[in-house]
Amino acid sequence: MLDDFLAFTLRNQPPVAPSGTTPGGMRWRWLGQGMLEIIPPRAIDTHIVLSAGVHGDETAPIEILRDLVADIAAGRLPLACRLLVLLGNAPAMSAGKRYLDDDLNRLFCGAHRNLPGSAESPRAAALEAAVAAFFANAVGARWHLDLHTAIRPSVFERFALLPQREAGYGPEVFAWLGALDISAVLNHRERSNTFTYFSSSEHNALAATLELGKVMPFGQNDLTRFAAVDAGLRRMLTSEAPAQSATQPRIFDVVGQLNKQSDAFVLAVGDTMANFTAYPRGTVIAIDRDERYVVSHDEERIVFPNPKVKNGLRAGLMVVERPV
């Protein structure tokens, strides 16, 4: 199972034994489809959740986690933290789809209870329960990195989204994001129903959603393009310090959200632009019946533009770079 956790997850069969110990003394426990806990033999005060595949078609991060698990199991990666690996929307992964009924990354913080008939609702509840149990008695540092790839190209190939957090984020977080090859960071100012907001708000984890590149089908990813990301994750899992050569990411604050309220919603600037495309003050970005979003800062950049989302969901974010 551990030598190819992805293939085992896609088969969707229970293991012969639900727990065991690796030759290197790591204790592992299968918690359900795509959910695996690994604990070193000695006491640890760092607790890390790594998730991927919350969108089932974002395959490169899933393959990265597969390889990390295999190396831990084989003793090639000396784990120095408690680790929870979650392959998020496993049913959608098996179907080769982004999701089956609803975007899983909008169903956390209990939002799944509003859609009891959705194929994604039981999965959101199961992932919440796994994270809650993992952090229940965790003393020390808590992290959750949720790994994604983007549908469209980006001015900044790798970027991160930090969920709204009353305590803010210290320099350690930005140092690690730089070490993970992240060149831009978005600071959210509002609550949401994403997986990382759930871990941050409900379990006080330092959480980040990482957008690491372009969506590709399984087996078509050039994982050498993710070498810096992989190296950063390995340093984190072995309790090494972030690489000193890491570049400090540029920081952006979310200043507006494009909400699709009706079928009349359109992006006035088109819908083929890259993430982080910049627009000057006065530009009309989106129109929805009588409502318009107009750039009110000297420059705003658009992130995640998607006019095809369901009504009532976010169709894009507008961000402004924070002065150095």
Rank of each mutant, 00 (worst) to 15 (best):
W176G: 07
F159V: 10
D253Q: 09
F218Q: 08
L317I: 14
A95L: 07
Q257V: 14
P217K: 04
E240R: 03
S183W: 03
L180F: 11
A241G: 01
A73K: 02
Q257Y: 08
Q244V: 05
L210K: 05
H203S: 08
W30N: 09
A264Q: 15
L84P: 07
Y197D: 15
A119N: 11
A92W: 09
N306R: 01
T59E: 09
W143Y: 15
T149I: 09
P307C: 04
A278F: 09
D253E: 13
I302E: 07
V324M: 14
D102S: 06
G117P: 12
W30R: 06
V255H: 12
A136P: 11
Q244T: 11
A130R: 00
H112K: 00
V324N: 15
L267K: 05
A43M: 11
E291Y: 11
A278M: 11
P307D: 11
D103L: 01
L100F: 00
G96T: 13
V254A: 07
V173Y: 10
Y279M: 02
L233V: 03
E299K: 02
K214I: 12
C109L: 10
N105R: 03
Q261E: 14
R142A: 01
L84H: 02
G232M: 06
G32M: 12
P18K: 00
A80E: 15
E321L: 10
Y293K: 08
K214Y: 13
A268K: 09
F265V: 13
R292E: 15
P41L: 05
Y99T: 10
A150N: 15
F226L: 08
R113Q: 09
D146S: 12
N259Q: 07
P305W: 07
A126Q: 13
E128Q: 06
H47R: 00
F304S: 12
Y169M: 06
L145Y: 11
D57N: 10
D146H: 11
A228K: 12
L50C: 10
T283Q: 03
V266P: 07
S192A: 03
M1D: 12
Y169S: 10
P307K: 06
G312M: 03
V16M: 04
P249S: 02
N114R: 10
P323K: 13
N259P: 00
L2S: 09
F226T: 03
E37R: 13
L65S: 09
I44P: 06
R234T: 01
F135S: 02
T149N: 15
L84R: 00
G178Y: 12
A208C: 11
A90S: 13
R76I: 00
L317A: 14
V324S: 15
A274F: 06
E120Q: 00
L68W: 07
P153I: 05
I251E: 03
P280G: 02
L313G: 11
V155P: 09
P15V: 01
M216N: 11
Y99W: 13
K310W: 08
L77S: 13
H144D: 06
Y169G: 12
A7H: 09
P23M: 02
L86R: 02
H188A: 12
L79I: 03
G270W: 12
T209P: 08
D290R: 05
Q164L: 12
F159N: 14
A111M: 08
T21C: 07
S94E: 07
M273V: 04
F135W: 00
P41Y: 10
F5G: 05
G34C: 02
A95F: 03
E157T: 13
D57P: 02
G168N: 12
R29I: 05
G88N: 00
D4S: 08
T22W: 01
A74D: 01
T194W: 01
